[in-house]
Each structure stands twice: as structure tokens, then as C-alpha cells.
Computed example of a mutant assay.
Amino acid sequence: METFASFRVGGQRVYGMVHLPEPDLSGIAKPAHGFPGVVILHGYTGNRGGDHRLLPLLSRYLSDRGIASLRFDFRGSGESEGDFSEMTVSREVKDATAAFAYFKDLPEIDPERVMLLGFSMGGLVAALASPTLRPHRLALWAPALPELWLKMLPGGFVPPAIFDQGGWPVGREFLLEMPRLNPLKTAEQYQGEARVFHGDADTSVPIEMGVKYAEALGCDVIAIPGGTHTFESLESTEVLYRVTGEFLLGK
């Protein structure tokens, strides 16, 4: 079952989609304490749909295997309120925290088995939020590090207001904050089960960044053969879904 989700953060409306397993269709019995579930964080300039429907199809894949999920648009992205120029990583951590609380409180969800999955910059956000949210499991897809965005600074200088990046209005605060973030050190504080999934053909976020996250978390990194940053082949996507599902199910 798929239903629209809506909650407020800082006076602005955030929109998303909740996916719940359907026992009558899947043959999976509803657990007595509710379904395990995962909150999914999209990447920079992305939305809850993802490239080539990557995130909706993930939610449906997981639902067929008994895992609920919440996909949502960060404020300033997708259909949520706010402007992209207001976006910062800290602001997205607040959005992720509100989404986690919203999802955890749903009557169909087991509050003790709420997990977190972050893709690309969403992985950076998930790593920063994980010690506070303490998800049951933490999955990072191609997690990015702050230095990727430091290259955006023209001549090493922060623009006075808005930086036009291909039609995206990037705010000054986003760029000023990046050097202050330390997701690897923060990730070391997370004490739960974690795993990193990274395409071995990713040229946007090098797999070495995924390895650094795995080292900080003390977990394995799973290399997806032929996987680009957005896993642009049916084969790499199939492998990604399978190994992610197995991890979230504790296999």
C-alpha cells in the first residue's frame, strides 16, 4: 500500500510517500509489533523519485519483502516547500530527523526497527544524523564527502549570495558550512549495524569515499560491479536492490 506523507519542518511542508507491505498480496504476515521500515534520503539536486525511478522501485522491492519505507523530498527539493537556495546539510539533517520521527510514530511501523538509508549527499546527511537517531540499521549508497562541493568555489572564494550551478540556486550558507562538516568523525559515534554500497564505476563520487565511510563505521563496503553513481544499468540496479534488501533484513 502506498500513501502520501506530509509533515512540517520549520513551518514548511515536506511531502513524501509511505510504502507499506501488503500481507494479503505478498504472503508475508504482519509482525505483531509492526513492520520494520527504512527512511530513504535522496541526494543533492535530487528528489524522492531518484534517477530512472531508482527510489520508488527500491521501496516497492522492499515492500514485497516485508520492509516498509518512507521516501520524501528535502525542503527546497522535489515537491516540498522551501527554496533550494535555503538548502544546507544541517537543514537536511533536521528534515531527516523530522521524517524519522514521523515514520517511527506510524501505527504500522515497529519503532524499534526503523532504519536509515542515504544516497550520495543523502549518505552524508545520514551519517551526520545517525548517532542521534540511532537507526536499527544504517545503509549508505555512494556516500559523498564535503570536499566534492568545495570544488564549486570559484577561485576559492565564496559567492556573496547565490551561486548559479546549472540552474540550481546554491546558497552561500551551503558552501560556508561544508568545510566545517566532519561526517566521518561523526559516523564513528554510531554503534549500530551499518553497510556501505558503492558502484565500482562511480566517477561522480569515487568508491574511495565509500571505503572511508566504511572504515569510520567499522563495516563492510559492497562494491556493485559496473555500478555508476546512479547505477545506470538493469544489472547493477538488480544487484544493488538485492544486497541492500538482504542487509536491511539482517541476512
Rank of each mutant, 00 (worst) to 15 (best):
F103P: 00
S26C: 07
R242Y: 08
D105C: 11
G78I: 04
L181A: 05
E188S: 14
L62Q: 02
P135E: 08
G37R: 00
F174S: 03
G227W: 03
V205P: 01
T237A: 12
I67E: 04
L62E: 03
M17L: 11
L57S: 12
S236R: 05
F7T: 04
T237L: 12
T45M: 12
S80W: 06
F163R: 14
A98G: 06
V38W: 01
E246P: 03
P206K: 09
Y213R: 01
G43H: 01
R137T: 06
T97H: 07
N182Y: 06
G11A: 11
L176N: 14
L128M: 10
M115S: 11
M178K: 03
V243W: 13
D164S: 08
G226Q: 10
S233G: 15
D202C: 10
P169Q: 09
Y190L: 10
E92Q: 12
F84G: 03
S90E: 09
V125C: 04
C219W: 04
V114Y: 00
A99G: 09
R113N: 10
G199A: 15
T3R: 12
G76D: 03
V243H: 13
E193Y: 05
P183C: 10
L176E: 15
L41I: 13
R53V: 08
E232R: 14
Y241F: 11
F163Y: 15
D83G: 13
E22T: 11
F100S: 01
V93F: 03
Y44L: 13
T228G: 05
R75S: 06
G199C: 12
R180S: 11
H198L: 09
G167F: 05
H33W: 09
Y61A: 05
S233T: 15
P225C: 13
L248D: 00
P154W: 10
E22M: 11
D51F: 10
P107I: 08
P56Q: 14
P160K: 05
L148V: 11
H33Q: 13
I109W: 00
G166S: 07
V93E: 05
E22G: 02
T237E: 11
K212C: 09
M121Y: 05
K212Y: 08
I224P: 00
G192R: 02
E147R: 12
P56R: 07
R75L: 10
V205R: 01
A139H: 02
N47A: 15
S204P: 01
K94I: 14
G250H: 05
R195Y: 05
L54S: 14
L248Q: 00
S80E: 09
Q12C: 06
G250K: 04
K94V: 14
G50E: 06
E86C: 04
V170Y: 00
T244S: 15
K185T: 15
V125Y: 02
G123F: 02
P131G: 13
L249H: 04
G46L: 08
A29V: 11
T132G: 05
I222V: 15
P111F: 00
I67L: 15
F35C: 01
K185V: 14
F103G: 02
G34Y: 01
V196E: 08
P143Y: 10
L140Y: 04
Y102T: 01
A214R: 02
E208V: 12
M209Q: 11
P225L: 14
D73L: 02
K151C: 06
P143A: 12
N47F: 13
H33D: 14
Q165P: 03
L106E: 03
A142I: 06
A32P: 01
V125G: 01
V18I: 11
G118W: 02
Y190Q: 07
G27A: 14
